[in-house]
Amino acid sequence: MHDIELRVNGHAERASVPAGMTLLEFLRDRLALTGAKEGCGIGECGACTVLLDRTPVTACLVLAVEADGLDVRTIEGEAADGELSALQRAFVDAGAVQCGFCTPGMIMSARALLLRSPHPSDEEIVEAIAGNLCRCTGYEAILAAIRAASGTGGEP
């Protein structure tokens, strides 16, 4: 067991975790933050994407102990004070959501993109979300949503 301290969506968390626990399991099973999903468990689908110190990672391939001392942001932290972020709003308005299973990971990848590049080019957008598989939408509406959210500020 390892004692870890980290921030999750701005809240300090302290926990004791086994070495083999992934960050995804920690978020879902310990903190009940079930927004991040498991679509494959091997880094291929991006459904589990969260931000670790502002950069997106696949939480299925990060150990919870590795997040010790770091800042984690999940989809649950995106709508600050219950207001949808401009990015979330854009996803709703552009019809970028169908079954919604890929959506939390997709939005976190897009969030990280807007943090590092507030006015991303189309090429940057594609590169940023190519690691997030979506079987429903054909991506077009998702690209449109991120384009629409471009320039809405790095922070939600």
Partner: peptide
């Protein structure tokens, strides 16, 4: 290599 998320690790 891989995806943006993976390349962060």
């Amino acid at each position: 290599i891989a995806t943006y998320q993976l390349r962060n690790r």
